[in-house]
Nucleic acid binder design. Structure first.
Lengths: 220, 220
DNA sequence: CGTAATGTTGAGCGCATTCAAGCCGGGTGG
DNA sequence: CCACCCGGCTTGAATGCGCTCAACATTACG
């Protein structure tokens, strides 16, 4: 995770990982109400996190992929307040939080890294709030696609092609839209020649057009 | 902040506060793009934090009052990514973040406290995402009022009366609504006898009715 | 006291939702 | 191998909630 550590420090970081755990597609890594013990670094696979309101509606709060950390919600009350569900078979590193705190006291780089991870999540959520609070359907979906493909590209995948690991309903929940609206908006993008969509396989034909939908300044 | 500390530890916590700073109403504590140096504990007053999209629209991400901490967004990139604006004359404790990290290594309770504050912010934002993603106007405003009054009550204020420190537009921005919709929804609550509203002064007449709007299970 | 900022209310509109029907693709069993 | 089924997806038509635009009221403030 952090870089620029001594060999000794790196050895100690290994101590953080108590175990690896495999999660089958469709099952939960943790669930709302469960006792919080650990953070989880995703090694492989793809997750969604979601919170539920009292009356059953639920909201997807994010999609996480390899290299990202889930479980931060549990720290505050010693219990998780959301579900983390694997959208494909996955493997995670289990990092007991007391070990993280213990080692953070001795390895400054780790301490700062933990703070940055939490801060990054806060900033990410600010972006989602902006999306949910002020964007129209097309902007939301365009933002979503650009964000996904950018994260995948950072992991060595294509800049223009991606496979959605989630259903239209899950995308809709995340974006504050109904699944029909997600589907319709995809169709509109296809009509306009911006993307090709074949079920969950998406190919972005015109990245600039997507960026223009998100931020229509160049067009004016 | 944390409780159950030794006298010596408490003395050291004082060291965290490099200064106090007074912020006049309408001015910013920090602004998007500014260098991040410190977290700020609000002593008195009331703030909003807001992020801006490229094309000018902005989204209020939260309202903060005495005892709450702002500035967490800056840790990730060493620069702030949102504005913190005082909605009334305010005073904050300036806590340089390097001192926080330094002392966190030695005072376990402080370390854990910092982690909890960040986790709490993440969980709070999950709640906002649920609101923005799936609630209708009445539910949003009811949730907002209940949340505000609950936090004020925890600080010794009334359970049923509050003074809004923000405009209708700011409420709307936070809730993902236009100011007219906020105003109309207030009016509807008044018609139904749920609240009294005189400009920014709000008196809650029927808390249960508000709760019922948020979570309409009791009514079915 | 006058001006600007803030808040309320009305009318009409548009985008996303709701409800409904049908399609597609993958997996299973006869 | 094909028929069938089921979950996920698409598309259409009608509805409605919140938005836009506009006029006016009220308050804050210099």
């Amino acid at each position: 995770m952090p870089v620029g550590l001594s060999k000794e420090e790196l050895d100690r970081i290994d101590y953080l990982v108590a175990a690896r755990r495999k999660i089958k597609r469709g099952t939960t890594l943790f669930r709302n109400g469960e006792k919080f013990t650990s953070l989880y670094a995703i090694r492989t696979g793809f997750f969604k996190t979601c919170v539920a309101s009292e009356d059953g509606r639920d909201q997807v709060t994010g999609f996480q992929m390899a290299g990202e950390v889930v479980g931060l919600d549990g720290i505050v009350n010693d219990h998780h307040t959301c579900d983390a569900v694997a959208l494909e078979d996955a493997e995670v590193c289990v990092m007991p939080f007391d070990r993280i705190e213990e080692l953070s006291r001795e390895v400054n780089a780790l301490q700062h890294h933990v703070h940055k991870i939490m801060s990054r999540e806060i900033v990410r959520e600010h972006g989602v709030m902006l999306l949910l609070g002020s964007m129209r359907a097309e902007e939301r979906l365009a933002t979503f696609l650009l964000n996904l493909v950018q994260r995948l590209h950072a992991r060595g995948f294509s800049q223009s092609e991606l496979i959605l690991r989630m259903t239209r309903e899950e995308i809709g929940s995340f974006l504050g839209l109904k699944l029909e609206t997600v589907s319709r908006t995809f169709s509109r993008f296809v009509e306009e020649g911006i993307v090709e969509v074949k079920q969950r396989h998406v190919r972005i034909l015109n990245t600039d057009a997507l960026k223009d939908i998100v931020n229509p300044k160049a067009g004016c």
